[in-house]
Design a protein around this nucleic acid. Structure first.
Lengths: 158, 158
DNA sequence: TATTGTTATACTCTATAACTATA
DNA sequence: TATAGTTATAGAGTATAACAATA
């Protein structure tokens, strides 16, 4: 049971770095690219002691005023988890809970001015961090890549 | 202090869904796309009670035999965090610790057969989940998108 | 009765600090 | 003395279950 799988040792020792495999398909490339982008966002968030979920929470609130249940569904979290995340963000002065006007049970979540300022800085740092990658493409290719990605993920919500 | 920012209420109530903003740049599109991909991977991992870090750990071990310190550096985690993550994976029979032959202090981490099987299934499910998105593009466009992404992230490690 | 949200509890994930063993 | 890894501890993030308030 659970016998250790011994892969051929050729190229297995030494550096962990691997040359990009140009034979890999679009899905693998998307996954690899996404991990790189997430690492960048995670590092920028960590510099402000923000988890990925917290960064995403702030990003969602930039131009929306969802209630708790909507946030939970959007982030793919349980409502209890959402309560905790919003509570910690509120404790830090980044968001505020506002009673919903139409439904006495519901709570809307909004950015505070401090939260909006922090989000603005995070976005600026994200653009700066990813700029060197974007610079690997010509301007016309950047636009093409953007259009292709937007068509790929049309109908998806991030 | 921390006064609540009251954005204009136009279109603020109701659904949280937003139409894609075709004016957004490549960086914003990349971030949005990455969150979608991460959500897919996270959901598939969660179905097997695997965190994103655990999924990524298994993925790295597919064709590599890194030591603990290399894994930590690769995943962007502290070595202590790495010890815990590997310990939990080992407890579940997914990976094994093997003493490094050249350095008595070092420990190599390898996939077990069970771990390799699980990783294989995760990758199949990932491909299936992302297939509908890929199908939004023609075959030639898929190849173009893949090439552009590979050039974007050349030199990056995921 | 169903829905919205919070509280209680437990486990994973992560980091900082202190430690052991080897180089 | 420096490096590789583990253990101890604490807090964030997550889920399941039980609860209170409103619809």
């Amino acid at each position: 049971m659970n016998q250790v799988k011994m892969a051929p040792m050729t190229r297995m020792h030494g550096s962990i770095r691997q040359p990009p495999d140009s034979r890999e398909g679009l899905v693998d490339t998307l996954v690899t690219a996404s991990f790189v982008v997430m690492a960048v966002i995670s590092r920028i968030g960590a510099a402000h002691e923000l988890s990925l979920s917290m960064v995403r929470l702030l990003g969602i609130l930039r131009d929306r005023r969802p209630r708790m249940a909507e946030l939970a569904e959007y982030l793919g979290l349980e409502k209890q988890t959402m309560s905790g995340l919003v509570a910690r963000a509120e404790k830090r002065g980044l968001v505020a809970r506002v009673p919903n006007e139409d439904d006495g049970r519901a709570v809307d979540v909004v950015l505070t001015d401090d939260g909006a300022r922090l989000l603005h800085e995070l976005r600026a740092r994200g653009r700066a961090a990813l700029a060197p990658l974007v610079a690997n493409l010509e301007a016309s290719e950047q636009q093409l890549a953007r259009d292709l990605l937007q068509r790929l993920f049309r109908g998806s919500r991030g």
